[in-house]
């Protein structure tokens, strides 16, 4: 089946309607027009640029370029995890924990899905590897960022409770147990919700894209199931690692709660 070609003037038509929407909000003084236009512009520019990069990458089909691209994506995701924290762990620990846990989970699961399950030739074929890794990283990033933020912020707020439990002779794992569970929950909730609603409430974006591009729904569904399960694996193990290392870092070798290892939130 052939995909219907989209030309730039057709996109311009869609864009002009966004401009109309921005105009309407401006007329009604709803104060959203500026950020709406900026965000729309960013989408166009960022996606066009990544389109060029992907074209080049697909043409070259070299492992070293794919690996470099993956590394860049990982570092940007690590930076993003750090930026989403109210209270960071000082000394680069948030970036370190975030990047490491995303690396361990996303990369492992992606490589596993590529080599064992999908099996393209060669295994790192960028048409498969990059979008798959992108979806893994994007979701794992959200999970890790949410979980770490919840962990450090709740520990900060409940310092008196944690310390009182330490005073009663509880080991640190027990004293912060409730908070760890909450952090884990907030990291995994988005993915659990997405899986629960998939196909009933929402048609996942990737599947929709494949169907629009001419893939049969039956095959698109299989890919979607694979992707969602892989994402859940990646998010789950990534969040698990981040919560385990992050909560340990809140205590020192004498099991004292060390909130001085957290940054103060920016006003």
């Amino acid at each position: 089946m052939n995909v219907i070609e989209l030309s730039w003037w057709q996109l311009a038509l869609a864009a002009s309607m966004v401009v109309v929407l921005a105009g309407c909000t401006a007329v009604m003084q709803l104060g959203m027009s500026r950020s709406l236009l900026v965000a729309a512009l960013r989408t166009v520019v960022q996606l066009s640029l990544i389109g060029l990069v992907l074209e080049a990458l697909f043409a070259a089909e070299r492992l070293v370029w794919v690996a470099l691209m993956a590394l860049a994506m990982l570092l940007i995701a690590g930076r993003e995890v750090m930026a989403r924290q109210k209270r960071r762990l000082l000394g680069g620990w948030t970036f370190g924990i975030g990047t490491l846990s995303m690396f361990l989970s996303s990369f492992t699961v992606t490589v596993l899905a590529l080599t064992v399950i999908i099996g393209p030739e060669p295994w790192y074929r960028p048409q498969y590897a990059i979008p798959l890794l992108g979806m893994m990283l994007g979701n794992t990033m959200t999970g890790v960022a949410l979980a770490l933020d919840r962990l450090t912020d709740t520990a900060w707020r409940q310092r008196a409770v944690i310390e009182n439990r330490l005073m009663l002779g509880e080991p640190w794992q027990l004293a912060i147990g409730d908070i760890r569970r909450e952090a884990m929950r907030s990291g995994l909730m988005p993915m659990i919700n997405a899986m629960a609603a998939a196909g009933v409430v929402s048609l996942p974006g990737m599947m929709t894209g494949q169907i629009l591009a001419g893939t049969s729904p039956a095959l698109a569904v299989k890919y979607q199931i694979l992707v969602m399960l892989s994402i859940t694996l990646g998010t789950g193990f990534g969040t698990l690692a981040a919560v385990a290392v992050g909560s340990r870092r809140l205590f020192d070798s004498r099991e004292r709660l060390r909130l001085d290892r957290l940054s103060t939130p920016r006003p």
């Binding site: 409940q158 009663l168 002779g169």
Partner: peptide, 20 residues
């Protein structure tokens, strides 16, 4: 002494207790 075992023996009761 492992820290939690020490605190179990040397029990501090704070002025403001916490109930979770």
């Amino acid at each position: 002494t492992p820290a939690h075992r020490w605190r179990r023996q040397v029990m501090l009761v704070p002025a403001e207790s916490q109930w979770w």
